[in-house]
């Protein structure tokens, strides 16, 4: 590893990459992986991403991933880590729907549609911080404590300037989170329709 390379962001992304692979393997497997196996896979795969492999690669694998997707938001990172390692209950549907609505409004405006730029609120806007805290509070009132923890950690990470960005949005939302929320909602709707078809409503009792 070159001494110039930033270590912590690469470690964080290496863990994330390893957990994505474990999550995919888990999805493909009929059995639940025990925690010991997950940790072993995490150590092996994480090191594989983190250290330079040589061959014709100038950089470790994780640097190529980071070059493409940048630093993931704290919300995405912690949701993924907790889902794979802690096997917690999935995020509420209302949270996923909220992410989708926010992304649909946020990205076009932030990418140049009109003169209003909601991304700029993430630098130093008190109303925006209050709005984020309210959303976390709603998560708590909705009995989703994990959401409260994740948003609170994201706010602290932003204040501590953990990532390169000084913008709170970058700690809360990223395109992968939005894509995940859309995919999860579509999968849920598909699943409900399939369950409805399987329930044989044509022959149900009248």
């Amino acid at each position: 590893m070159n001494s110039l390379m930033p270590i912590f962001p690469l470690v964080e992304m290496s863990i994330t990459c390893a957990l994505v692979i474990i999550w995919i393997l888990q999805k493909a497997s009929p059995q639940d992986f025990p925690l010991a196996l997950k940790v072993t896979l995490l150590v092996v795969l994480g090191n594989l991403f983190f250290w330079p492999l040589g061959f014709s690669l100038e950089l470790p694998l994780v640097a190529y991933v980071r070059g493409m997707v940048g630093d993931l938001s704290i919300v995405t990172t912690l949701l993924l880590w907790s889902t794979v390692l802690l096997s917690t209950k999935p995020a509420p549907t209302s949270f996923k729907a909220f992410i989708v609505i926010v992304a649909i409004i946020f990205y076009p405006l932030a990418l140049g549609f009109g003169m209003t730029d909601p991304y700029a609120w993430g630098y130093a806007s008190l109303p925006f911080l209050i709005a984020v805290l309210l959303i976390a509070l709603i998560c708590g009132l909705g009995n989703w404590s994990r959401g409260v923890w994740i948003i609170a950690i994201a706010i602290i990470a932003w204040a501590a300037h953990w990532h390169e960005s000084a913008n709170l949005w970058d700690y809360l939302l990223d395109p992968l989170l939005a894509i995940w929320a859309v995919a999860a909602l579509i999968a849920m709707i598909y699943q409900k329709r399939r369950d409805k078809a399987r329930s044989g409503y044509l022959f149900r009792a009248g």
Binding site: L4, M5, P9, E58, L59, Y64, G67
Partner: peptide, 9 residues
Amino acid sequence: EKGLGRYIA
């Protein structure tokens, strides 16, 4: 790319 810790094209 070494300084920024990411692939640069």
